[in-house]
Every structure is written in structure tokens, then in C-alpha cells.
Design a protein around this nucleic acid. Structure first.
Length: 438
RNA sequence: GGAGAGAUGGCCGAGUGGUCGAAGGCGCUCCCCUGCUAAGGGAGUAUAGGCACAAAAAGCUUAUCGAGGGUUCGAAUCCCUCUCUCUCCGCCA
């Protein structure tokens, strides 16, 4: 959410900046509402002041035992006028709020301008692409070839865009998550958290998923309850990312200055409806309704958020480096960034079978955008409550990392070499496949 | 799911219709006193918004005692709904 004062005083500039991301701010509607708001609010407050002073007078008179009927008739008509003004004001404020909640964040000055991903800018590249001397397979063929990846059964159990892993593959998946958690907690100083996977609407509004992106979420109703009618809106949604529960820990809080920065990591499943992505990435583990992710969140002093963003990306990169998976870091352009982000780096891992880099992490500085929605503040140097800055990033998406490991570490016989750093999590196993791992 | 109790400022806690944004205490800040890191005295100490203004300060003003609604000229206080916490019972991985 943007600051409304900024919109009042600096509208044309803001409209211009939002246009860079392809968002058209409804300036005329906003101005009209603001003009109306100003009049009605002033009027309402005047009526309230009038009511307050006369009520006080009545109180004073009564305590002296004086007759109050004269004053009483004076305020008799106040009530209706006041109620009407209050209703009108509330209506306008609602409308304004609705507009505000749907406006995306302003891009940081350093963000490259552009319409879509073709304008994203490569920042750096890491690792050597492996040369294969055999015909490589994609992760689906590899996993199914091993008999450890089974989309058919997953479809029977649930439907499209679900997966089922077994044996060594399921374990490798777990190993990856454990490995990531250990690096982030032991080497990068994050606090491990276990969080709810079902959250309420306030939380989703706080991080920006609601009200605009409800169709991307899964909603949950209590068993046996009336199916969700308009009145009966679902109480919970499945988290699309751990960013939601983690970041919302500071919602409506004022944290002490000394506790900053807060750095949290959590491994959770994520649930996304993938509405509007029909036909995209239908094969394999890349785009699933349910996937695991290790999420990193920073809650920081506003002066430090861009420094924190660099650190955050570095922490995610570290995982790929330790796994020896080649990747590149991209700065997203204005048109490709998410709703809440002021600046985003994507990390893209090399997938040899697709002969391309694919997104495996997205690290964003949301500045005060989420904090303003959440009223997440800290007590600053002068003791004043001040909005925090929030950042989040994947460190990393576990399923996609598994895809990268399968494809980059495949052998000619269809087996997989287990990356060195994961072997201690695999009971010392160094290969999945021919040597007979079940 | 059943029965009961509760939710007040950074914290504790008083307040059952009128001058209450809220006693008192603790904590914190500043000042005074004090031959010394003690004791004492004094002052201050919520947040968000609106108006006006070039801007800041000051000013005027509104809202907020878990949330929302209601009664009333007037609500922390009365009524209704909801949320959360605690105790006991039931059920449950």
C-alpha cells in the first residue's frame, strides 16, 4: 500500500512511476473521492465537536442540579445529521481504501524499465555448464526411469499438477530442504520457524495477496459447513508461500530497535491454484499446486533494506554454489515485478534438458509497502513508531532445486550422482539408481 | 462440543453512564537535591487521522479502553454479535 499523503501531494509523479509497471492509476476517481472526502470529513468532525461540547454542558449542568431541557432540545436534531454524515464518510473511506489496496508498489530507481521479462537485466552468472557426452533426459524421464517419480498416481489421488515421490527421491527432496535450513540457520544467522499453513484474510491482506489475487489461492472451509456462499466467505486460505505467515508475525506490532534486523527461515509447503497458467509447464515438477519451499524473510530498519536485499540474494545463491549448480542472477524490470516489490532479483538455475535457465528463487525488497498494510513498526532512534521494511526470498524452491539436481547430476545409465553436500543427509549414499537405491 | 472467568496505555492495575485519553504504581526521559552508581523531590511520558500552512513547530479538531454493531444528548462503563486468552469437562493425532 502506498502512503495516501504521497498520492495527495505528488499524484502525477506517482501515476508516472506506476505506469512503468503497466499499472494505470485511476487518478480522476481518486481526486473526485478525495475532494468529497475533505468536505464530508470536515463536516462530520464539526458535528461531532458540537455534540461533544453540548453533551459536556449537559453533564456539568446536571451535576449542579440545573434544568437541562433547553440544551437537550438544542441537540435533538444533531443525531440524524451526524449519523448521515458519518455513513457518507465511511462509504467514501471504504472506496478510497479499496483503490489503495489494489495499487502495486513503486519501483525503486535502480530497477530497469521494461514491459516484460525480455527487459530483465542479468547481474551476474556463476558456475560452469556441464558438457554431457550422452543424450540427456529431463527430470521427468529420469525420475520415472528410476521408478521414484509417479505423476499418474498423483493424478489419481488429487488431479493434475500434483506429484508423488518415493524412496530415494523423496529422501533427496527432504535432504535438500534440511540442507537449506541448516545452512541458513548455522551459517547465515536465520531463526528457524515453524508456521501455520492456513492463514486468515488479514494476513493475506498484509502481504498483498488480498484483495487482488484471491483467484491464485486455495480457500478452505470447515468440513460440513455450508459451501462457501457470498455471505459465508472461507475463513482460511492455504499459504501460497511462507512469506505470508512469517512476515505477518510483525503485523500490528511495534518491535524494539535493538531487535532489528529480524531474519527468519521456514520450510513449508506452498499451495497455488495456478489459475491463468493453463498449458504452461504442464510436464513435470516445475509448476505444481503444492510444492515445498525454504523461505527467507528479513524485517529491517528502512535505512538498511537495500543492503539486506543483497545479503538475502547472496544467501540463496550460496545454496546453489554449495550444490555446484550453475545459475544467473537477474534484476527484474518494472513490468515483470510482483505486486508488493520495489525491487526484485530472480535467481535462475541451469536446466540442461530445457537448455535454459529457470527461476528457482525470487528475492524482493518490499520497502514499507507490506509494513504499511500490516502496521508493522519499530520504535526508532527518537522513540517514534516507524514503519519497517520487509524483504523475502526463496532460499530455495525445493522442488525446482530437485529438478536441477536430477538434470545436472544425471549419468548415462539413468542414475543420479548425489551432490557431495547432501550425502550426509542421505545416509552416506553417493548415487541414486543403478547401484540399487530404493 | 459443554460450563464458567476474563480482555483497559510500554508493563501492572483502578474505574459500572457525564468535567475520563483514562486514578495509582512500575518502567523510561529531563531537572533539582544529595560527598558519591543508594534514598528523596519536581516535571514529562499513547497512537492514528483531518483542517490550516510554502514547510516545520505551535494551533484547532476527530477517533481509539479486544473487534464490530446498538441504546443514549453523552458509553471504558448498559445491550447484542464475534474474536482471542484462562479454568474445568468431553472428544481427538
Amino acid at each position: 500500500m502506498l502512503e495516501i499523503q504521497q498520492l495527495r501531494t505528488d499524484l502525477s509523479n506517482i501515476t508516472q512511476q506506476l505506469a512503468k509497471r503497466g499499472y494505470t492509476f485511476p487518478a480522476e476517481a481518486f481526486n473526485a473521492l478525495e475532494a468529497e472526502r475533505k468536505i464530508i470529513q470536515t463536516q462530520t468532525q464539526e458535528l461531532q465537536a458540537q455534540r461533544n461540547t453540548t453533551s459536556k454542558k449537559i453533564g456539568q449542568a446536571k451535576s449542579k442540579g440545573e434544568d437541562t431541557s433547553a440544551i437537550m432540545t438544542e441537540v435533538a436534531h444533531l443525531g440524524d445529521a451526524l449519523k448521515q454524515a458519518e455513513n457518507q464518510l465511511e462509504h467514501i473511506q471504504h472506496h478510497l481504501q479499496k483503490i489503495l489496496l489494489e495499487v502495486p508498489n513503486l519501483p525503486h530507481i535502480s530497477v530497469p524499465e521494461g514491459k516484460d521479462e525480455t527487459s530483465n537485466m542479468q547481474i551476474r552468472q556463476w558456475g560452469e555448464l556441464r558438457q554431457f557426452d550422452f543424450d540427456i533426459k529431463d527430470h521427468v524421464s529420469i525420475g520415472e526411469g528410476l521408478g521414484l517419480l509417479d505423476f499418474e498416481t498423483a493424478a489419481k489421488l488429487s488431479g493434475a499438477r500434483f506429484s508423488l515421490m518415493k524412496g530415494g527421491l523423496a529422501r533427496l527432496h527432504r535432504a535438500l530442504a534440511q540442507f537449506m535450513l541448516d545452512i541458513h540457520t548455522l551459517e547465515h544467522g536465520y531463526i528457524e520457524t515453524y508456521v501455520p499453513y492456513l492463514v486468515n484474510r488479514d494476513s493475506l491482506r498484509g502481504t498483498g495477496q488480498l484483495p487482488k489475487f484471491e483467484q491464485d489461492l486455495f480457500a478452505v472451509t470447515t468440513g460440513g459447513a455450508e459451501s462457501s456462499s457470498a455471505e459465508n466467505t472461507p475463513e482460511y486460505h492455504l499459504i501460497p508461500t511462507a512469506e505470508v505467515p512469517i512476515t505477518n508475525m510483525v503485523r500490528d506490532e511495534i518491535v524494539p530497535l535493538q531487535s532489528l534486523p529480524l531474519k527468519y527461515v521456514s520450510h513449508t509447503p506452498c499451495f497455488r491454484s495456478e489459475a491463468g497458467s493453463y498449458g504452461r509447464d504442464t510436464r513435470g515438477l516445475i509448476r505444481q499446486h503444492q510444492f515445498d519451499k525454504v523461505e527467507l524473510v528479513h524485517i529491517v530498519h528502512p535505512d538498511q533494506s537495500y543492503e539486506a536485499l543483497e545479503q538475502l540474494v547472496g544467501h540463496a545463491e550460496k545454496i546453489l554454489q554449495k550444490l555446484a549448480l550453475p545459475y544467473r542472477v537477474m534484476a527484474l524490470c518494472t513490468g515483470d515485478m510482483g505486486f508488493s516489490a520495489a525491487k526484485t532479483y530472480d535467481i535462475e538455475v541451469w536446466l540442461p534438458a530445457q537448455n535454459t535457465y529457470r527461476e528457482i528463487s525470487s528475492c524482493s525488497n518490499c520497502e514499507a509497502f507490506q509494513a504499511r498494510r500490516m502496521q508493522a513498526r519499530f520504535r526508532n532512534e527518537n522513540g517514534k513508531p516507524t514503519l519497517l521494511h520487509t524483504l523475502n526470498g526463496s532460499g530455495l524452491a525445493v522442488g525446482r532445486t530437485l529438478v536441477a539436481v536430477l538434470e545436472n547430476y544425471q549419468n548415462a545409465d539413468g542414475s543420479i550422482t548425489i551432490p557431495e553436500v547432501l550425502r550426509s543427509y542421505m545416509n552416506g549414499l553417493d548415487q541414486l539408481g543403478s547401484s540399487g537405491a530404493k
